[in-house]
Structure formats: C-alpha cells, structure tokens
C-alpha cells in the first residue's frame, strides 16, 4: 500500500473573489513507503501548496489525500494527528524557534502529541543526534546557536515527532556549501536508518540528482511527471522548456552527445560522468 496517495487534487486560492487563482489542478500520484522523492518545479508551480496539502495545513478544494490509506479529511477534528504522521519542515525553519532551551524547543512537537516524559526525552536526544547537535547544546538557548545550528535544531523539532512521512521545503536555502552538504548527508542518513518516506523540495538539481530515488516535477499547477531520477533528467530539453534545468554534469553529457560523442547522457553525478568519459576515451 502506498503511504501517500493524492487523488484528483484541485486547490483554488481566494475562492469567490476576483483574486481567484487555481494553484493545483487535477493532481494524482502515489508514493511508496520508504521512498526518497524529490519535488521540483518553477516558483509558482504549486509545489509549496502541494506539500501543505499533504499534511493538512490547507484543505483541497476538490479531491482526496490518503495517508496510509486513510482519507485525511475524513474527520476534520483529528487533522492534528495527520500532522504528526506527516512532518513538515518549512523554508527557513529556524524562524519557528521560541523556547528557552534547544531541548524544550525540540520537545514541543512530542509534547503536543501527548507522549510520556521518558519517550519525549528519548526522542529529543535521538533527533538531536540525527541532526548533529551536541549534547551540551541542548541546554543552551536556541537563539545563541549559529545559523546552520538553528536550522538543524528546528529540523530536529520535526524529526522528534517521528513522522511516517517527512517533508522538507528547501531545507538548505541560504546555507553555504559546507552547511548544505552537512545537512543533506544528515537527511540521507536519517532516511537510511529510519527507513521512512522523505519528500524533499529543492531548487538545486545537483542535490536532487544525488539523493532522490524518484522525482515529482510540477509545472503550472499540474503534475508534469513522476518518475525515477534517471528518467526525469533524461528529458533535459523538455525540463528547460518548463523553466527547470538539469544538473550541470548531465547538461555536459547531453551536449557531448549532440556533438556526436557517444556517452550516456543521463549521468547524475560528477563521479558517474567521469567514469563514463574515461570509458569512452580509453
């Protein structure tokens, strides 16, 4: 059974007013348990609306969303439980920190779930470990941390709820390359250990190419494609037409192939590209 299923989703902003705008139209897809799915799309393609629909922050105008086979709006009063199952990390999540200590802040979610103190403690510590926060930082104020650490503390706050599905909306925005690589590898490790489903929204095709199993491409409020990373990036020209690009290395291989050099145009990392060219040249 798929863990996330969207059925004929339509979402309209400002319904009934002159500002009415269809953000999503007839979106259907299924995501299997344990998958790592990248979500890409031009700004305004509807990807941010989509992820907010998935954890019940907004309600679809039409259509249904199933988490573990259950329609999330079947009982609107229990929508909070959906949010515990589908953890959502927003852009610049460090702006949500508010408690006196990092520990208390991370435990905000688990506390809202009504867990026992022991369980909360266990979860806070393991979430902090996943995101690379040190034990002694747990007792300091979140506002004393560096930018990258704040971001990790905020992500730990969502991971501590131990959601079945973790959604991250551009978790690396504004970080420098060092912070970005560290955070991405922590997310990948987390996914490997917990084996839950991760959805990652990103503008960086290089990052998505490196870590996603499948990619959901959104364009103008519609699902453009949902397929393996390899298959998505093999349609480079079409992606460019909808305002997206492919990783630089993929682009290079595509250009080489156009010039008659017979290499596989769908490589995703520099490593693969290097091997491919070495093979060709030797």
């Amino acid at each position: 059974m798929s863990v996330v299923r969207a059925e004929n989703i339509r979402f309209v902003y400002g319904g009934g007013t002159s500002f009415e705008k269809t953000a999503l139209d007839d979106v259907n897809f299924e995501i299997e348990e344990g998958e790592f799915v990248g979500i890409i799309g031009h700004t305004g393609s509807g990807k941010s609306t989509l992820v907010q629909l998935l954890n019940g922050l907004i309600r679809p105008t039409e259509g249904k969303i199933y988490i573990n086979g259950k329609d999330i709006w079947e009982e609107p009063k229990k929508i909070r439980e959906v949010r515990f199952k589908v953890g959502m990390v927003f852009q610049y999540p460090e702006y949500q920190l508010f408690e006196e200590t990092v520990y208390k802040d991370i435990s905000f979610g688990p506390k809202n779930m009504g867990l026992e103190q022991d369980e909360i403690d266990k979860r806070v510590r393991s979430a902090a470990e996943f995101t690379g926060l040190r034990e002694d930082q747990l007792e300091s104020s979140p506002f004393e941390l560096s930018g990258g650490e704040k971001r990790r503390a905020a992500i730990a706050g969502v991971i501590a709820m131990d959601p079945d599905v973790l959604i991250l909306d551009e978790p690396t925005a504004g970080l420098d390359p060092l912070g970005r690589d560290a955070l991405l590898s922590q997310i990948v490790d987390y996914h490997k250990v917990r084996k839950n489903t991760v959805l990652l929204v990103s503008h960086s095709m290089e990052d998505i190419a490196r870590i996603a199993d499948r990619i959901l491409v959104m364009s103008k409020g519609k699902k453009w494609m949902l397929d393996t990373t390899h298959n998505v990036f093999s349609r480079g020209k079409e992606l460019e037409n909808i305002g997206l690009r492919v990783p630089q290395i993929t682009k290079i291989m595509m250009m080489l192939r156009q010039k008659g050099i017979n290499v596989d145009p769908t490589v995703l990392t520099v490593e693969q590209g290097f091997n491919e060219i070495v093979n060709y040249l030797s």
């Binding site: 907010q52 922050l57 949010r83 979610g109 969502v158």
Partner: peptide, 8 residues
C-alpha cells in the same frame, strides 16, 4: 503554519 505542523 510551522507551529501547527508541530501540533500546536
């Protein structure tokens, strides 16, 4: 929204 997502 961010706090609601944490069950607030």
């Amino acid at each position: 929204n961010a706090q609601k997502a944490r069950g607030a």
